[in-house]
């Protein structure tokens, strides 16, 4: 990789920058076959390989063939395809290893654990008592007030996003966390915009919500029995 000056970088087209990123991306090299890997599935849009640092045997990663650093860059048809494949890979894990469950895991951003500059989706086969605890999502008690506040902020944002679809995929906005919107013709959502107060939120995590149902309690009635298939057994474990 030849040195590139800032001046040169400025003069590069987005296509050239993308090309440069690809040349430096090990996952692009895996897709092209320049770097060896254990491929378990491939089609025109994705390559699926075994993770070399697996959480469990069979841990696979789905890699889009195109280079996308972050999830919001991925066109919807590719994104949709990735997760249909993810379901298939999960099913394959259940069958290949007699797994009793799986995890789908995605890290967006370094803070969330993203290591590579190439978007990927992890599919991890799970067995009872396999010792993996990290995917157990923690639950905290938060006040109704805080939930209501989060709800109004998020809802305003989502309404705005879904209303003006083009704005959503503006990558410059996604990369910087600050909400610095130039005057937007939208009225309502921007008006009541509150500054998120992270400190308060973290400290606010005390009040117990009374009377809320515990999801753990719930039961599933017998699903229609067809043939005895691992999927049905797994689905019925909730009883």
């Amino acid at each position: 990789m030849p040195e590139i000056t800032e001046e040169q970088l400025k003069n590069m087209t987005p296509e050239q920058i993308a090309e440069m990123q690809k040349q430096n991306c090990i996952f692009c090299h895996i897709v092209s076959g320049k770097v060896a890997s254990k491929k378990v599935y491939e089609d025109d849009k994705v390559t699926v390989i075994l993770d070399i640092n697996p959480a469990n045997p069979g841990h696979s990663v789905i890699i889009p063939k195109e280079h996308y650093a972050i999830m919001p860059q991925i066109p919807e048809d590719i994104l949709g395809h990735i997760f249909m494949v993810a379901k298939g890979i999960s099913h394959a894990c259940l069958k290949a290893f007699k797994a009793q469950g799986t995890n789908i895991f995605i890290a967006n951003g370094v803070v969330a654990g993203q290591r590579a500059q190439h978007f990927m989706v992890h599919v991890i086969p799970r067995k009872e008592n396999d010792g993996i605890k990290i995917f157990q999502i923690p639950h905290k008690d938060v006040s109704e007030d805080q939930l209501a506040k989060l709800s109004s902020i998020l809802k305003a944002k989502v309404n705005q996003m879904m209303g003006i679809k083009e704005e959503v995929l503006d990558l410059d906005n996604i990369k910087k966390p600050e909400i610095k919107k130039e005057e937007e013709p939208t009225e309502a959502p921007e008006e009541g915009k509150e500054e998120p107060q992270e400190e308060n939120k973290e400290e606010d995590v005390k009040t117990l919500l009374g009377g809320k149902e515990e999801p753990e309690e719930e039961k599933v009635p017998e699903t229609e029995k067809e043939e005895e298939i691992d999927i049905d057994k797994i689905a019925e474990l909730f009883k």
Binding site: S90, A99, Q100, G101, T102, N103, I104, F105, I106, A107, N108, G109, V110, V111, A112, G113, Q114, R126, K127, E128, D130, F135, Q136, I137, I234, A235, L237, F238
Partner: peptide, 12 residues
């Protein structure tokens, strides 16, 4: 950052 996580099946 964000994490997207699916816990699929009791063992998951």
């Amino acid at each position: 950052g964000t994490n997207i996580v699916v816990n699929n099946g009791l063992a998951g």
